[in-house]
């Protein structure tokens, strides 16, 4: 059995297998979108799955615009949905 980690998405507790990506953890929790687009306000989640498309941006422990498909889960991690935030140039 693989190790489990606990994290929250917009305050709701979810669990994931250690070593999974944030995007995989959200997928397993049945969550398919976590941001809305700037122009149309449309929902987005995973698309390319490999860090190329930037559709899956999510706020991780307060850091906005992280690619959910690349960031590995960590116990106690806080995920927040939202829009694309132009905080700094692609920081």
């Amino acid at each position: 059995m693989t190790d489990q980690v606990s994290l929250t998405f917009d305050g709701v507790a979810i669990t994931a297998a250690a070593g999974q990506s944030v995007g995989a953890a959200l997928t397993d929790a049945g969550i398919r979108s976590w941001r809305s687009t700037r122009r149309g306000g449309r929902p987005r989640g995973l698309f390319c799955g490999i860090g190329v498309c930037f559709d899956c941006l999510v706020t991780v422990d307060g850091r906005p615009n992280q690619r959910a498909c690349l960031v590995p889960v960590r116990d106690g991690m806080r995920l927040e949905s939202g829009g694309l935030r132009e905080v700094d140039a692609r920081g």
Partner: peptide, 22 residues
């Protein structure tokens, strides 16, 4: 652009690396 549409390789990456079914 609807959630639930993915690149085939991304679906495969979820399966192979994360054992997640999209």
């Amino acid at each position: 652009e609807l959630p639930g549409v993915m690149a085939a390789g991304g679906v495969q990456a979820l399966l192979k690396a994360h054992r997640s079914v999209a």
